[in-house]
Every structure is written in structure tokens, then in C-alpha cells.
């Protein structure tokens, strides 16, 4: 045995771990910083320190008593939930029709969907606004949910269709021979086999309303109807230096559930993205 070799290998190992620790600190520093800021007694960005002199939860209390944060939270949760449910229903039904049937206009539909998802959402903004105004759905959550759902269909349907295609044809056909109707094949055979991709669609569409800024700002006009993304952005833009710690508390309140959800379900996310991108 040669000792220098072992020492060298040991030293490399230690160095790699030190390097990883340093990078990890950089990686999660912003997260620690925002959590600490939210517990700081002061209000301003300037006075907040990484290690607070004394910890307070008063900003969390103020968030609910002095701003509409609770309301925004419920709005976002509601919009996210219904967007998720509607998107999954629409996406799955559309993908099923496109994958399992051969009919006139099928290729045209597929091609159109591919083209549609490449348009920047801005292009349709003005007209969406006018249409919602006309049917009286401007400034309503339902209007926003419908807009999100319509936007989710083209990409989602492509993805799920690809997944359905990979399920051996013999399975639904066997069920049909046994006398199952189209509806039954769909619910009893296809759906259970596609849980991973459906989870992915559900998760991405649940998360989208938490992040979206553009459409929410366009459709929702009244302060009490705002979503978290708009509310928190305005808090930072207008009052960064006076209410910074309150923003920090709000950020933590949003980040914790979403991050936990994401980490738990990350394997579906990774699989879903891989499905849509590579898989050659």
C-alpha cells in the first residue's frame, strides 16, 4: 500500500466536500436571508440583519391584519385549484381523442396546437381583455381560470398524447373486445396507466397561477381580487424600504408550501419534462 496515494485521495475527497459546502451556502443563502429578514424587528431593508438581535413574528401578524394578504392567498389558492382541475380534464380528454382515434382533421388539430403554443401571450392580450369585457368576465376569477385553462391545453395535450401513444394498443383494444365502451376504456384503462404524466400536468397548472404576473394583472382589476404575485410585487415596488420585512414574511408564507410540494413531487416533474423534451 502506498500511503501518499491514500492521502491524496482522502485530500481530494475533503476538498470536494468543502467546495460543495461553499456552493450550498451560496445556493441557499437567499432563502436563509429572507427567512431571517422576516423575523427581524425593524421594517426597512437597510436595517435588517442576517442574525436578528431579537426574533419577532409580528410581521406575520401584520401581514394578515394590515394587508389583504390572507385574501390574496385564498384567491390564489382558489384560482390555482380550479385551473388545475379544469386543465387536467381538458388536457386529458383532448389528448385521449388525439391519441386513440384516427379521424379527419386530426393532423390539422395537432399541427395547430404545435403552432399555437409558440405565440407570445401578449399577442392575444388585448383581444382577451375585450372579449372578457364583453361577456362580463373581466375582473372575475372565473375569467382568469378560463384564460389559464385555454393556455394550458395545447402544450399539455401534446405531452399527454405522447404518453398515451406509448401505452400498448392491445390494452384498450382488449377492453373494447370485452365490451367496454369508449368512456369505460378511458376511465378504467388509460387514466390509471397515466398517473405520472397527469400528476405532472396537475402540478404545473397548480403552480402557474402562483407565478403568473402578466395575465393576472390584465384580468384582475379590483384590489380585493388580486393574486399573491401581483400583491407581493407591488409591495416590493412601492414600499421596498418601508415594508421590506413584511414582504419577507409574505415571501416565506408562499415559498414554504410550494417548495415542499415541489420537492415531494419532483420526480414527476423531472419525468414530465424529460417526456416532453428528449425521449428519443
Amino acid at each position: 500500500m502506498n500511503t501518499p496515494g491514500i492521502i491524496k485521495r482522502y485530500a481530494t475527497k475533503v476538498l470536494i466536500h468543502i467546495f460543495l459546502i461553499i456552493c450550498a451556502v451560496f445556493s441557499i443563502y437567499p432563502i436563509i436571508w429572507i427567512v431571517m429578514s422576516s423575523l427581524n424587528p425593524g421594517n426597512a431593508l437597510y436595517s435588517s440583519t442576517l442574525i436578528p438581535k431579537n426574533i419577532t413574528i409580528s410581521h406575520y401578524v401584520e401581514l394578515f391584519t394590515e394587508t389583504d394578504f390572507g385574501l390574496w392567498y385564498m384567491n390564489t389558492l382558489k384560482i390555482a385549484f380550479f385551473t388545475m382541475v379544469l386543465s387536467v380534464v381538458f388536457v386529458v380528454i383532448t389528448a385521449y381523442a388525439l391519441s386513440q382515434f384516427r379521424f379527419r382533421g386530426r393532423k390539422l388539430t395537432l399541427m395547430t396546437m404545435l403552432v399555437l403554443q409558440a405565440f407570445p401571450s401578449f399577442m392575444s392580450m388585448i383581444a382577451v381583455y375585450l372579449l372578457l369585457l364583453q361577456i362580463g368576465m373581466l375582473d372575475t376569477h372565473l375569467g382568469l381560470i378560463i384564460v389559464y385553462t385555454a393556455g394550458a391545453i395545447p402544450y399539455g395535450a401534446w405531452l399527454v398524447k405522447g404518453y398515451f401513444d406509448s401505452i400498448p394498443r392491445s390494452l384498450p383494444e382488449a377492453a373494447k373486445i370485452d365490451g367496454a365502451t369508449n368512456m369505460k376504456v378511458f376511465v378504467k384503462v388509460m387514466m390509471p396507466l397515466s398517473t405520472p404524466i397527469i400528476t405532472f400536468i396537475a402540478l404545473t397548472n397548480f403552480m402557474a397561477p402562483w407565478m403568473d404576473f402578466i395575465l393576472a394583472r390584465l384580468v384582475l382589476r379590483t384590489a380585493s381580487k388580486k393574486t399573491l404575485a401581483i400583491g407581493l410585487f407591488e409591495m416590493v415596488r412601492d414600499r421596498a424600504n418601508t415594508e421590506f420585512t413584511m414582504f419577507a414574511a409574505g415571501a416565506v408564507m408562499v415559498a414554504i408550501p410550494i417548495t415542499v410540494l415541489f420537492v415531494i413531487l419532483q420526480r414527476y416533474v423531472i419525468q414530465g419534462i424529460a417526456e416532453g423534451a428528449c425521449k428519443t
Binding site: T94, A97, F101, S124, A157, N182
Partner: peptide, 25 residues
């Protein structure tokens, strides 16, 4: 049957995406 399945999505996309896009163009 496939048309029946497609129609909700098609109607939604037609009004929320296609009409606004044509307008935008």
C-alpha cells in the same frame, strides 16, 4: 366520438386563443 371529445377544448381554444391571436396579427 373523437369530435365530441375534442369539441370543448376546440371551442375554448377558438375563443380564448385563436380569435385573440388573429386579432393580434
Amino acid at each position: 366520438f373523437p369530435y365530441l371529445f375534442l369539441s370543448p377544448a376546440v371551442i375554448l381554444i377558438l375563443f380564448i386563443t385563436v380569435v385573440p391571436l388573429i386579432f393580434g396579427i
